[in-house]
Structure formats: C-alpha cells, structure tokens
Design a protein around this nucleic acid. Structure first.
Lengths: 329, 329
DNA sequence: CTGAAAGCGCTAACAG
DNA sequence: CTGTTAGCGCTTTCAG
C-alpha cells in the first residue's frame, strides 16, 4: 500500500488535518510539530496523491491546450513555437499543461463542456480557433477561464491574444511598394480563421489592392503549391506574391522554381509568421514575423491572471509584428 | 452546482451504481433502463468528473512524458518528432499525455517517485535519459510501467526503444570510405547519453578509426560551432567530419563556411538524426536518419501493452536507421 | 439485472 | 495552534 496522510498523522500522533496544513504550508502549525511531521514524511518517503487533492480542492494546477487534431502534431512550426512559450510560463508558474487534440472538421458538434466538466483543468487555451465556431461561444458563455490565441473578437467576455495582422500585412505591402512592386498578388489563407481574414484586410487597405489579384488557399504548403499555378498562369503577371503564411510561401516558391521563374527577380515572394526553415530555405524568405513564442507566453500569463482573479474578462491583447527582410523579396 | 451521477440516478429512480454501469458500458443493465438513463444524461448535459473517477478507479488514462527542462522546449526537432509519434498513438488509443519537464542538471537528486505517487499517470515515458541516472534505476525498480526512449540498457526490467546507433554510424563511415574519405574526424555528442556512446562505438568499429581524430562536444549547435575550430586547425586535416547529430553538423558547417572551407569538396560533413532543416540548409545535409516519429509511436505502444498487461518487462526494441544522402557528403 | 455499503486520499469550514 | 466533521463524485465489492 501507499503511504497516505493518515499514516503520517498516526505516526506523528496528530490529526490528518495538521499534516495537511504542513503540506500546504498554510495555516498555523507549531514549529516543532511541523518539523516532526516533515521528518516523518521524509522517512516514509511520502508523496501526496494529487488526484485526491484535486478532488477535494477543486483545483488541478493543470491547463488544457485545445489544438486541432492532426497527425504529426508537432511538425507545425507555428504550434510548436506557441507551445514553447506556453510551456515556459507553465514551468515558471508551476502548472502542468495537457495537450487536447480536438477534431474540429466533421460536422459532429464539438463541445468543450466535457473538458470543463471533467474537472481536469483550471483553465483552457484555444489555439487555431475558427471563426464563429459555436463551441467557442459556449466556452466563453460558460464563464470558465479561457484564452483564445490568434483570434480577435470583441465580445463581452472573450479573452484573446492576437497579432496585429492587419498592420503587419500593410507594412509588408508598403515595403513591396517601395521596392517598386505595384502589381502584387495576394494569396489568402484559411479564411475561417480571423487572422487570415485580417491579413486579407491588410491587403485591401494597401495601395496595390486589386480584387483580380486575390487568390484563395489554405494555410498549407501542399495546397499552395498546387494553387500557385493560377497565379503563374495569369496573363498580366504580378511582380510579387504576398502569401498569408510562410508555409504557403514555401509552396509557392517550390512551384515557381519548378517553372524556372526567378525569385525575387521575376517574381518576389513574401510570407507571414517567420517559421524556422524560412531562414534556411533558398532564397531565404522575406516575411512578417509574429512572435509566436511571446504570444504563447502572454496567453498563459493572461489565463493565470484570470484563474487567480488578478484580472477580469475581457482581456484583449494585441502583439506587434515585425518585418524580416531576407532574399525572397 | 454541477450535475453528478446522483442527480441522474434520482431522476431515473435507480441507484447511482446503475448509472455508473451505463457510463462504463460494463456490467448488465436492462436495455430500457440504460436508454432512460442515457436520455436523462443528455437532457441534463451530464459529463463525468474524471478526477473523481480516477481517485476511485486508480486509473487516469494519462501518460507522463519526462523531458529535460529547457527553455524553448519545442524548438528541439528531435523531441518534437518523438512527441508527434507519441501524440499520434495517444489520440488513437484515447490516452492523454502530459509533458513533464524535469530539471536533471543541478545535483539535487531528481526522483520520479513523486510523479508515480501523485497518481496522475498510468505510465511514464522518459526522453533524453542520461546514462546511469540513478532515478532511472529507481523508476525501473519501482515496477511502475515505464519506457525509456533512445536508451539502451539490458537490465532485468528496463524497457527501452532505441535506434541502431552503432550500425547506423558504421554504415555512414562505410559510405564515406567508399567515397574515398580515409581521414574522417569524429565529433562526439553528449556522452552521458547511451546513443552518443554508441555512435562513438560505431566510429571505433570503422576502418577510419583514429583516436587522434575523436573530438568531444555536446548535442548542441552552438557548442559544435565553437569546438569546430579544433578540427579546422588540425595540421593533418581530415577530409570529412562525422558529427554525432544534425545540430552539431549545422554548427560545424556554419563554422567551415565562415572559414571559406568548401563543403563537401574541402571537407565533407555528415550528421545523424535527419532533422527537418537539414534538407533546407545549404549544402543540404547528408545524414543518418533515425525514425524519431516511429520511435515515439513504438514507445507509447509498448507502454500501453505494459499497462494493459499484454506484455511483460523487459521490452527491448531496436529501430533501424537509414542513410540519407544529400549534398554535404 | 440492480442496489447498499464502503472507501479512494485529501481539504474546507468550523469549533475549540 | 489543533482537531472534528463532512464531503468532493465516482467505482469496487459483495449481496441479492
């Protein structure tokens, strides 16, 4: 059998409550008693049963991270960086994190209520949320502590951390403009995410905006690779292509290279995100950096503030972006 | 208040036990009763409290993954790939995973006993374990279900999944030999990991083995970058450098390039692992691929077999490696 | 096929 | 400063 608080209490000839108090470090315990109890705990090599503690205290010190269910989860550099930030703070603040891959495709209503009711988590962070996902409203309405990452929506209680996608995109197009690119095609990402929409908005705000030059894709290299043809085959070719994320830019560049189109001389290419391989790809990718690592940190910090009632909903944080100029544009 | 099993039982006019039975799907329940209960659960939007369940059943359906505590956790492509494999299987088999960054440096004895006793996990997987880490013996002796990844040790009960590091390295050196490289420097990784030792053994087994050509580093790009000088400044220069992992190879190549040394013509460079950016780096990295994704999958599968008593300790699995020839050698 | 009793190990709230 | 009482929500075991 495992050693429990009762064993310690018996051996120390005190009540279990007293043991519990030294465990939590709160409440008054005589110094001598505490020392005796601590000694016995060490002797018996006691370690508390956290499940029991959670059941009783209604706190688990663990945060659930909701992510889309995909194979090869960690091959996504965006996720990976946000998670690194989250993990840094969780270590610092002594929380555990649990990844929760959730199937958001099929039309089976996903609901986060089961996660909330499971009592496994003190709070939830949602990554890669989709616009108008009803389960998000449900989550927000439940009042359960939660933060939505890279998702911008000004509802009453929704807490979010997002990048300045509009401004970031605008600055990219301005940069291209100054470089002499007046005809810039815009390759949109998955428009069921607010950041894809915002980036498109950034393009619409730019001097180069031309509705004929808007193409629709997904945040996905393979899809971009295929769809790139539509841009390449344009009669009036653009001199630059702005891609809504770096993976798309990579796909587009692969396709351009296959077609012996020189980057950036024939067509310049820009991305958004600043994923790791952008630096190593040839030509090295010019892009708009969003600090995914910072976003991860910020989102968990905000969530913990919420949980510990140091702040109230709605928390709304916008994180700056930054131009990273390399060789592709 | 939250809806509990008691609410359901009352409304259905049965005992809580009957509700519990339909919840678990085991034991006999009359079809009608079950239907009634199911209906009421839906009506009330009932979701079980998993903490309570775990306390009672002594099972949590979650696996702890022990990893070294570092900043920017997920920037390590090796970890990332192994974790992807683990996560794939966890989704398939309906288990949760929890990452447990553990500080293994300082001389404070780390112990996994607290993790075991916390009752939070049904099993543990250890990544990046160190040779002769006493806490590993403790873990193994405890009899708690566990699997150690990329760690080869034939003790009575230790379960491991490892790559064929010796053979892999041998084949790399054989390849270099055939390419005409008779003078090959070997750059060793962190020798407190069994796989670093094994790779060194592979070099020792090779035709090119020369103790003057062995250099010691860590599995770390920055360290390799600095240490590379020692190799570069050698009077009798090698024609190739075998690095014990890809990050080291990247560091070495950066340094060589700084010194205007042509890769592979002046000095060829090989790595081990096949991390993602190796393909995009210029010159593209020639390396020994270990299937980290597969290793992740295999290790969780083995652990679940252990937990569900489908297999017994010791489980010992060696995974094949494969030469990936690109441009750097 | 269903129920009663007991308990998993801990903490909150109150009393002293 | 310490103890008592009660209970978190579920499952196991045994009985019927």
């Amino acid at each position: 059998m495992n050693i429990t608080i009762t064993d310690i209490a018996e051996k120390a000839k005190v009540s279990r409550m007293t043991v519990s108090r030294v465990l939590s470090g709160s409440g008054y315990v005589a110094k001598e008693t505490a020392e005796k109890i601590n000694k016995i705990m060490k002797e018996l090599d006691y370690h508390p049963n956290l499940i029991a503690r959670s059941l009783s205290s209604q706190k688990t010190k663990t945060i659930g991270i909701i992510i889309p269910k995909t194979e090869k989860l960690f091959f996504d550099n965006y996720l990976t960086q946000v998670l690194s930030g989250i993990s840094d703070i969780s270590q610092e603040r002594d929380y555990n994190i649990m990844l929760l891959p959730v199937n958001r495709s099929g039309q089976q209503k996903t609901s986060y209520l089961n996660l909330i009711r499971s009592k496994l988590f003190d709070g939830l962070i949602v990554l890669k949320a989709q616009i108008d996902d009803p389960s998000i409203n449900e989550l927000v309405d439940s009042g359960f502590p939660s933060v939505i990452v890279n998702h911008r929506k000004y509802s009453d209680k929704l807490n979010f951390v997002d990048s300045e996608n509009i401004k970031g995109t605008e600055s990219a197009l301005e940069y291209l403009y100054k470089k002499g690119h007046k005809k810039v095609a815009f390759f949109a990402g998955s428009l069921n995410e607010t950041n894809a929409k915002d980036r498109l908005q950034g393009y619409k705000n730019s001097l180069q905006y031309n509705s004929d030059y808007v193409f629709y894709g997904e945040f996905n290299k393979g899809v971009a690779f295929k769809e790139a043809d539509k841009i390449i085959k344009l009669k009036s070719k653009p001199t630059a292509i702005f891609c809504s994320d770096d993976y798309m830019a990579l796909g587009v560049m692969d396709r351009l290279k296959e077609n012996k189109i020189n980057i950036p001389d024939d067509i310049a290419v820009m991305g958004f995100d600043n994923i790791e391989i952008g630096e190593f790809y040839r030509p090295a990718l010019t892009t708009v950096k969003q600090s995914m690592f910072e976003i991860g940190k910020t989102s968990l910090e905000a969530l913990l503030d919420l949980i510990n009632k140091q702040k109230k909903s709605p928390i709304r944080i916008m994180v700056k972006t930054q131009l990273v100029i390399r060789d592709s544009a």
